[in-house]
């Protein structure tokens, strides 16, 4: 029984480490070298249909995260606010993001870890 619990814990931390070492997602660009490595689910969002994204902040237990996005070519943002929910240590879930036009969207994350504030940018192309 005890061994089972331990192996469970090992498996969990191994998968988290893996998530950060393999970074199969879309790696975000930070404004600061001290910012933890961050990436989001790498998907091709459908035009004007809600989709979900998970953000991983490597080596970060908890943080305050806000999310927004704009279409730089058209100078407009999203028509909906997006709530960010922490799901496990270092992972955050965003539901019902709507990119209401095809083209290039810039994702913007503001992250507060203890007293430090970082901002991240990423890009997604809506076909």
């Amino acid at each position: 029984m005890k061994t089972l619990c331990i192996s469970g814990a090992v498996a969990l931390s191994a998968s988290m480490a893996l998530a950060c070492s393999d970074q199969s997602g879309l790696v975000l660009t930070a404004n600061d070298e001290a910012a933890p490595v961050a990436f989001v689910t790498d998907i091709t969002p459908p035009a004007s249909v809600p989709f979900d994204v998970t953000l991983t902040l490597c080596g970060t237990a908890s943080a305050e995260v806000t999310f927004d996005a704009i279409m730089p070519a058209h100078q407009h943002g999203m028509n909906y606010a997006v709530d960010v929910r922490q799901v496990t240590e270092g992972t955050f879930h965003m539901e019902n993001i709507v990119f209401h036009m095809p083209g290039l969207w810039e994702l913007q994350f503001d992250v507060k870890i203890d007293e430090a504030r970082y901002s991240y940018r990423g890009e997604m192309m809506v076909p």
Partner: peptide, 14 residues
């Protein structure tokens, strides 16, 4: 097609 997008030719937005 920026606005008249998708199978219904509308993004259902404003």
């Amino acid at each position: 097609s920026f606005c008249h997008s998708g199978p219904n030719f509308s993004n259902s937005e404003f």
